[in-house]
Amino acid sequence: MKTEEKKFFPMFVDLSEKKAVVLGAGVIATRRVKTLLDFVGELAVIAPVCTEEMASLAAEGKLVYRQKSYEREDLYDADLVLAATDDEKVNEDIYSACKCLGIPVNTASNQLKCDFHFPGILEYDGVVLGFNGSGKNHKKVKEVRQKTQKALEQSRKEEEICEK
């Protein structure tokens, strides 16, 4: 029997009362944090240094930033973890610890070590759309998300014209 490559299943999960812990606070972590903010109940970012944007989000009270190096204990109360440090060994340890603790983890530097992937998100009139190419073509996913957004915006404009 020929084995075909499976696609990712688009599963939407209620994270509104869950805690996400992000290890690392660079550009990728900041982008992912901005995506998570609208969905999680609590967000903690742990890293020795962070981007200005991450610092601003912390100052606004949108997340808790702990300026320190990773320790395994940082994971113990997490419901979801993102390993986004610039140290492959640290990301490996985070991944291994999460697997042992049964915590879903996304390792930003290695898509093979991800229990979940970040979709391209589009929110429109209270509807959340997620776009994902199974980790294969990020540019195509972005293109499709942008085309969908433009089509929805155009549809809205047409509806407004018809209502007048």
Rank of each mutant, 00 (worst) to 15 (best):
D87H: 11
Y124R: 04
A59W: 04
P48I: 00
K89R: 06
H117P: 00
Y95P: 09
G61F: 14
A84Q: 12
G102C: 11
T107R: 10
T85L: 05
R66N: 06
E52T: 13
I94M: 09
L57A: 01
D93P: 02
M54Q: 06
G61T: 08
I94N: 07
L122R: 02
V105T: 09
V49E: 11
N110S: 04
E73W: 10
F131R: 01
G126C: 06
L80D: 05
T51E: 09
A59V: 02
D93H: 07
G133K: 01
D86M: 06
C114I: 12
V105Q: 05
D115E: 06
E71P: 05
D74M: 10
C114L: 07
Y95S: 06
G126T: 04
V127Q: 09
V49I: 00
F118Q: 11
T107Y: 02
V49A: 04
L75R: 06
P104V: 11
Y65F: 15
V90Q: 11
D115Y: 04
P119D: 11
D74G: 09
V49W: 00
R72M: 13
D115V: 03
V105F: 08
L63I: 15
R66A: 01
M54V: 11
L80Q: 02
Q67D: 02
C50I: 08
V49M: 08
V90F: 04
F118P: 14
V105K: 04
L82D: 04
K68W: 03
K68P: 07
R72T: 13
K99N: 08
E53L: 03
G126S: 00
V127R: 07
H117V: 15
